[in-house]
């Protein structure tokens, strides 16, 4: 027996360790609803680095874009080329400012339509893996951002805050498989649950007899307790009514382009005076 234990000790202890890790994960799933000190510390420590990296990449991309634009210009006139480069760089910057201005204007107009207080935030990082859909924003509990608060963009619903540090928060996007939003079709008022599927959303529990058209807008129903009623989630992109069963299979294309998400609004709980 002792010999057997000595021979298999490492394997058994390894399996025991793995089992302990699995049990701890299982316990954490049910207990840890709020951000822990460890998570706050890591978010706070990495936030400025992530923010700096994102700014650096965006400005480098601008400079690189300007350089690429210059490749085809005439080579004989160095002075003109430099001038051209400078102008192009400035033009690029102005274009970027103009685009940002447009985005912020849309966000401001959207903000005016919201009865609750809103807080603008910038996206500074994405999820570390390819399988989950979360982003990090540059506002935290020091700015009144708390777990569970909804996050939107001018185009529609983005997600909800799941973890927060003093100056950074993580947002679970509606396209993540762990996300579920109570929704309804704007015209027919058919109800269902929007679940994330990576790039698109599935609209579950819509009765088979409910009439649905491609392109119809799907909005939040306000039933889930997270999102206020009436925010645009997306549009119906495919409907599959099976021969049998209670429900139909509906796919929704989100209104927000998550690959180009830069500025968002956090809907704070307080009502605008």
């Amino acid at each position: 027996m002792w010999e057997w234990w000595r021979k298999n000790r490492v394997v058994l202890l390894g399996l025991l360790l793995l089992l302990a890790a699995l049990l701890w994960y299982s316990v954490s799933l049910r207990q840890q609803k709020e951000t822990s000190f460890f998570e706050t510390l890591l978010l706070e420590a990495t936030g400025p680095v992530q923010s700096a990296f994102t700014s650096l990449v965006r400005s480098t991309a601008d400079i690189w874009g300007s350089y690429i634009n210059l490749v085809d210009t005439e080579q004989q006139n160095r002075r003109l080329r430099e001038q051209n480069s400078l102008l192009k760089s400035e033009l690029n910057q102005l274009k970027e400012i103009s685009l940002e201005n447009q985005r912020l204007r849309r966000l401001l107009e959207f903000k005016k339509t919201q009865p609750v207080k809103t807080l603008p935030a910038r996206v500074i990082a994405e999820d570390a893996t390819s399988w989950f859909r979360t982003v990090v924003i540059d506002k935290g509990y020091a700015d009144q951002v708390h777990e569970g608060q909804p996050v939107v963009a001018a185009e529609g619903v983005v997600g909800r805050v799941i973890r927060n540090g003093p100056h950074e928060s993580r947002v679970l996007l509606i396209t993540d498989a762990a996300s579920a939003v109570a929704a309804l079709v704007q015209d027919s008022r058919s109800r269902g649950i929007c679940r994330g599927q990576g790039r698109a959303l599935s609209f579950d529990f819509v009765l088979r007899k409910e009439p649905l058209e491609l392109g119809e807008a799907v909005i939040t129903s306000g039933m889930g307790g997270v999102f206020p009623k009436g925010l645009l989630i997306g549009h119906v992109s495919s409907v599959n009514r099976m021969e049998f069963g209670l429900f139909q299979a509906v796919e929704i294309m989100p209104a927000v382009d998550f690959s180009r998400l830069e500025e968002v609004l956090v809907l704070l709980r307080e009502v605008e005076p």
Binding site: W24, L29, F38, L42, T134, I162
Partner: peptide, 14 residues
Amino acid sequence: YDVFAGSFPGLHGF
């Protein structure tokens, strides 16, 4: 890693 990926604490540890 779980602080930066997904929404399930302990998942990547396991």
